[in-house]
Amino acid sequence: MTTPMVEAQAVKMYFPIRAGVLQRPVAWVRAVDGVDLAVRKGQSMGLVGESGCGKSTLVRVLLRLYRPTAGRVRFMGQEIGHCPDGKLGVLRKEAQMVFQDPYWSLNPRMNVGEIIGEPLAVHTRLSRRELASRVEGVLTMMGLASGDGRRFPHEFSGGQRQRIAIARALVLRPRLLVLDEPTSAIDALSQAQILNLLNSLRQELDVTYLTVSHDLAVVSYLCEAITVMYLGKVVEHGLTRDVFRNPLHPYTRALMSAIPQFTSAVKRERIVLSGAVPSAVTPPPGCRFHPRCPERTDRCAQEEPGLLEAAGGHHVACLSAPVQPGDPH
């Protein structure tokens, strides 16, 4: 098997809650609590889950904005979870990210040309003219005017700003593009345009995508594989088509049932989860989903389910799910 583009092994990311005069940590927020994840080269992987489930934290660990509390992260085969900042050159050049908020993700005091040119200025020794022509090239690729480089972010709409952010992320021709809720802050029409653009860019540029979203429609459109997270853990993972057709985890089923439907031909039953997401400081024992699970059994409160393979490449972490025996993953 080839080395994955990015790979997490038993990654934990705990944030301390400090209190008292000495600012000692009194508790830990377990934002990511033991996650295994591998994104293959050329794949488009979606990471879904509710707000606060740790998906954004996980990608920030994968890109080493945070040092993981425990576990290993490899990017293109190289260990990056704990190495010194100076050794992150490949990661910083080959992995880029597009943020959710198209307003604050662009420096309001820099013009668009400077914004898009910055990765080039940091990683290459292009002349001013070469740099300008690269910036212009990527602007056109994004469907923006080449003269837009002299304008400032506040002169653009949300959708246009997100294009600028994508241009900045792609100008170095990275191998991995992380999209953190790329369309959730913009209007529906721009959303559709951005998604189309992202899809065609992926084929054109041969980039690996890792998309974080709470919007299953976005993920189903953009991603071949999908990973569902709940309270810092992966609960289900598989090809998008398998997961959508046959969601194995009760939580995934609840998420699926919440997708709005335009046709009423097939009346689907809506699974409404009761209660709120429990605190990540004191996660419930056993299966973390059991207090809200409509299908819980007595075992669920005691035993923590592992992520096991149910069918070819389709994994689930649920005690009641039909898994293949003897596969420790």
Partner: peptide
């Protein structure tokens, strides 16, 4: 903690450059 500063860190912009070009001017 603003995303444009995170973005700069993620693309490997040196800390001094981030401080001057992204943080100071704003």
């Amino acid at each position: 903690e603003k995303p444009f500063v995170e973005a700069a860190r993620m693309m490997g912009t040196p800390a001094t450059r981030i401080m001057v070009r992204h943080v100071l001017v704003n």
